[in-house]
């Protein structure tokens, strides 16, 4: 099982500028599997992304935009991207600010589809 997860994550981390990718329990913010560069705090990425995603999901629902599927937080020194994999999981990537967001998004969606 963990080899399967690792394979899924490796396709994301192969993209230039991606510092790490992980599968996270959506509601708990705990790491299921990760593939991270040294220095990336996996548990922090997982917990903070899950918490942000929960808040965002409440807002998208309230605004009539429906159920959250993808989020991209762009910051000056990096970016955080996540795709929901069903109601249970999130596939998350942390990346450099100049990463190819479109490509990461596609790989995250593919990873989420492989998980569900």
């Amino acid at each position: 099982m963990s080899k399967r997860f690792q394979g899924i994550l490796d396709t994301i981390t192969r993209i230039r500028g991606v510092r790490g990718a992980m599968i996270v329990v959506y509601q708990d913010g705990l790491v299921v599997s990760d593939s991270l560069m040294e220095g990336v705090r996996g548990n922090a990425v997982a917990a903070l992304t899950s918490s942000l995603a929960k808040h965002v999901a409440n807002a998208t629902s309230a605004s009539g935009a429906g159920v959250l599927q993808f989020l991209h937080l762009q910051a000056i020194s990096g970016a955080l991207l996540a795709v929901t994999a069903g109601a249970e999981m999130l596939v998350v990537a942390i990346a450099d600010p100049s990463v190819n967001v479109g490509l990461v998004r596609l790989e995250l969606i593919r990873a989420a589809e492989a998980l569900t």
Partner: peptide, 20 residues
């Protein structure tokens, strides 16, 4: 999140949902 992950100031949040 940006403070703890040392990502610098946030600039924007883009979200895709089922209906918007």
């Amino acid at each position: 999140a940006v403070r703890m992950l040392k990502l610098g100031d946030w600039q924007r949040l883009v979200v895709e949902a089922t209906d918007g």
